[in-house]
Structures are given as structure tokens and as C-alpha cells.
Amino acid sequence: MTVALATLRTAFLEAWSNRRGFWFQVGIMAANDVAWVIFWVLFFRKVGNLRGWDTHKVLLLFAILTTVSGTGLGLLSNSRRLGELIAGGQLDAALALPTNPLTYLLTRRVDTALLGDLAFGPVLFVVAGDPTPERAVVFVFGALCGTVVLVGFLVALGSVTLFAGGRGEQADLGFQAILIFASYPIDVFGGLTKLFLFTAVPAAFVTGLPTSLVSSFRWPVALGALGAAAFFALAAATTFRIGLRRYSSGALWTRV
């Protein structure tokens, strides 16, 4: 844990060393988020209530989404690049260190722009999420569960590169799919698509369940969110560990 925190601190300081660039990128991402807020406001202004969703609820979803992406993709930036790192031979350097390679890789790099998301999400929750102490606690709980599911899913997909080779395209597609599905109200999807969002691309656990929990807390849903987080954390760690046993080297000169 100490090593992970120290690595994360170093990664953050590295990003912070260019202050002007840091604030510029954070600001740009916040402006990007504002554009999405405008989209949803315009959408619901025309459409009205949509299967129980209105501007208020969708902004809560967006607050959770930006917090989750800020944490899972901003602080743990390599979670989406694991397949690419493996394919590029950059895993070898981590294996030589006296620490867990997965933890090291995940905490090694911070994505400055996505830290803008991490700042924007809680602010949007305060502004549009009717914050009370209880709702704030559930918001943090939901965002943490969503983050673990997102990171776990991406790490598991990235680790497939250890078995299947390639350049991590499957992780890239998974990343795009989960993020975009998580950006929309889950209730607009029906039947098979909804099932898909609870299984193959678990976007429902990233934003759908947390939003539902903050709107109206229910213990079974909370346990479901927690269970999903535990499952994806375990799946990621296991896939990476088993893959590592089969891994020899990503060095380019070892490939025929």
C-alpha cells in the first residue's frame, strides 16, 4: 500500500511539475464536461420525462460518471493502457521491481486531463445532486464501486493481451463501449441490451446502479454494487496473474 501511494504521489508530482499545462488540461476537460451538461439540459428540455429520467437525475448520473472516470482513468491512467503496455514490452521493467507489478503499473501514471473529471464530478453533485450527508456518503460509495468495476473490467481485458497477443485492441474497444454505455440512462435500453450491460460490458454497475442508489437507497442494490466490485476486482487480479505465468517477454527482439 505504501509503495502504491508513493508511486501515485510521484505520478501526480510528475503531472503537477508543468503547472500551466496541468491547469490548462484540467480546464479543457471541465469545459468538455460542461458541453455534455448542456447536451442533457437541451435534450430533456425537448423530451421531458423519459422512463423516469429527467435533467436532474441524468446530471446525477453524469456526476457519478465523471467522478468514476476521474478516479479510474485519471488517477489510475494505465488501467486503459494495460494491453498496449504489455504489447509494447513495457511490462518487463515493472517485473524487475520488488513490488506487485499490476499495482505499480496502475499507479505509475496520472492522466492530467481526466483529473478535470475528478474535480468536475463532485462539484456537479453539489450543484445538481441535492446533496445531504446521507446522499453524499452513498455518492462516494457508488462512485468507488463504479471505479472498481471499471478498472477491473479494463484490466481483465488488457490482460487478455498476455494470452492472445495483439496490441490491446480488445481493451480499447471495451473501454469505448463501457464508457459510452455508462453515459446514458440505463432505462432507455430494453431486454437484451440491458442484460448485456449487466454482463459482457458492465456499464450498469459503473453508473446505473450507483445513480439508482443515490436516488433511493436500497440495501439489496447496495450489496449488488459491492458484489460486482468484488467480482471485477478478483477477475482482474486473477486474469493478470494467470496471464503473467504464460508471459515470457514483450521485448520486440524476442518476437519472430
Binding site: 435534450f43 421531458g48 495483439g166 430494453g190
Partner: peptide, 29 residues
């Protein structure tokens, strides 16, 4: 081909989402 397939698949995902979203929106109005 890999890059092309990822991009087309991403586009297909967007279409699935927007099909659901706009169908529901039109239905509600």
C-alpha cells in the same frame, strides 16, 4: 483492419445507444 474494425464497431455501439435513446424519446412525445 484492426483499427478499422474497432472504429466501425464503436460506431455501431453508438448507433445502438442512440437508436434506443431516440426511439424512447420519440415514443414519450
Amino acid at each position: 483492419r484492426g483499427e478499422l474494425a474497432v472504429r466501425v464497431a464503436f460506431y455501431a455501439i453508438i448507433l445502438v445507444i442512440f437508436s434506443a435513446l431516440w426511439s424512447a424519446a420519440a415514443g414519450a412525445n
